[in-house]
Amino acid sequence: MRRLFRARYAAPAALVGCVAIVGLIAFSPSATLADAAPTTTLPVLTTTATTTTPIAQPTQSVSGALNYAAPSNQTGLFYAQLPQAFIAPGEALFAANCASCHGPAALGTGRAPNLQGLGAGTVDFWVSTGRMPLANSSVQATRKPPRFNRLQTLEIAAWVQSLTPGQGTQVPIVNTNNADLEAGNALFTLNCAACHTITGAGDALPGGAYAPSLHLATPVQAVEAIRSGPGNMPHFSVGNITNTEARDIAAYVDGVIQHQDNRGGFGLGGIGPVGEGFVALLIGVGALMLVCFWIGDRT
């Protein structure tokens, strides 16, 4: 047995090991970050929503994302009127969790901005992506598992919206079923790739900020971000990106960016030649140098 570990076998063994690891990674079912995404609590919303409002019948799309069957709506995107019944519990949740920084009337304090007029969609984006409540005072709020479930989030959003009815970004209902992926691709490349990168991996921005990865964004969050421009992101109004176009971008993010066609093998993080260079030099040239080391004289 000890003979197996003699130096002369070490190099080929290491090579086979490297290859095996790469192989395992490449063949493993695509374990994207999306698997770690917190599941939204659909049933709660279903019961509440259907009893109180005439709007949407929630359905499960293939990808498991939250979608509504939009009534007689060809663009696949419209904005929900949140139920009146959400407002009261939303006020209680806001008072308990948000008011300490944003003030009891959401008018903002020295520590946090005024939320009035931003609209339910803006609130939904920040809370549903876990960015609010803030974990620490870094330059930029980071995405984390949300504190509140889907219903609670919409309740808070409904209360903030009720302070300034009709203003700001609304919570969208996105039906990506008939979306135009080609249009979404073109729009994403022109409007989003300059910051979020063409693969949606995200990258650092000047000033300590960064464009976040899009690999966890739901279609609803994508549209909310497009419309409300969180943080350093520009605001894209309907005159800039139409509802249909926003739907197509959301569909492209949900369907293509988050389920990249990596049929060439392991995607190497989608960060382009930086990752490729490391693989070429460390695994490629490195493995071949090990082979040289095995074949050749080592004195």
């Binding site: 300059a194 910051c195 921005l205 000047p206 000033g207 900020a209 992101m233 520009p234």
Partner: peptide, 13 residues
């Protein structure tokens, strides 16, 4: 193409 809205900067990617 990279516009940082808060800092009002254009950045060349």
């Amino acid at each position: 193409g990279l516009y940082q809205e808060q800092t009002q900067q254009l950045v060349c990617p």
